[in-house]
Structure formats: structure tokens, C-alpha cells
């Protein structure tokens, strides 16, 4: 368990480094994707339970069911968050395509020089 938490922390640090230090637009987008994935890993690790039953509600009573089963909420959260992350990535790629048409480069430092 602890190694999963550590991995997600390491991924977050790498992602922030990638977003802050790399000048390339595509690399910044990759950094954003890695950051969200690290949070997804954290969420899934939080929801882990060793020997639970599958979260299919066969009982009528909600409370006893909630004590036995694996927690399905983090997985639902992660799925929702993946959808959001996909739409953001698609939008960012679209914007970077248009930026490439305007500036003929994907490097932010060169873009600033072109702008003058």
C-alpha cells in the first residue's frame, strides 16, 4: 500500500516539474495528464479493501451492504475524472495545433521571441 502512495507522490512531483520547466507545449500537456493520473492512482489506493464482496447491491439494506463490499465510489470518481481529463487534453491539443499554425513552433520561448 505505502509504495502506491509513494509512487503517486513521485508522479505528482515529476508532473509539476514537467509542466513548469519544459518549454514544449506538447510536453506541458503530457505533464498535465500525468498529474491527473497520479491523483487517480491515489484515489484508487484510498478505495482499496482486501477481501470485500463485489459492489453489486443484492441486499435491500444499504448499511450492512456498505460495510461488506469494496468501496465503489473512488472508481466512479476516477472514471468521471478520466472523462474530464480527456476533454481537457483534446482541447489543449486543438489549441496547440492552432498555435503551431500561427507561430510555426511549439516552443514557448521561441513564441515569446516571435511576439517581440
Amino acid at each position: 500500500m505505502i509504495e502506491l502512495y509513494l509512487t503517486s507522490g513521485l508522479m505528482m512531483m515529476l508532473a509539476v516539474y514537467c509542466i513548469a520547466m519544459k518549454p514544449n507545449l506538447i510536453k506541458k500537456i503530457i505533464g498535465l495528464a500525468i498529474f491527473t493520473d497520479a491523483i487517480h492512482l491515489l484515489l484508487i489506493t484510498i478505495g482499496f479493501r482486501g477481501n470485500g464482496i463485489p459492489p453489486i447491491m443484492t441486499h435491500e439494506n444499504v448499511n450492512t451492504f456498505a460495510q461488506l463490499s469494496v468501496d465503489p465510489v473512488p472508481q466512479a470518481l476516477v472514471l468521471t475524472s478520466i472523462v474530464i481529463s480527456i476533454s481537457i487534453t483534446a482541447l489543449a491539443l486543438g489549441i496547440s495545433i492552432i498555435a503551431y499554425r500561427h507561430f510555426n513552433t511549439l516552443n514557448t520561448e521561441e513564441m515569446n521571441r516571435l511576439k517581440g
Binding site: K28, L32, A92, I95, A99, H102, F103, M111
Partner: peptide, 18 residues
């Protein structure tokens, strides 16, 4: 979709989604 707005939107996007 001109030069200025593309650059501003990308900046806003990266900072905002972070």
C-alpha cells in the same frame, strides 16, 4: 483563434487545469 487569444487560452488552460 488569433495569435493573442491562442496564447492566452493555452496559458489559462495549463494554469487552470493544474
Amino acid at each position: 483563434l488569433n495569435k493573442e487569444s491562442t496564447e492566452a487560452a493555452f496559458k489559462y488552460l495549463v494554469v487552470g487545469s493544474l
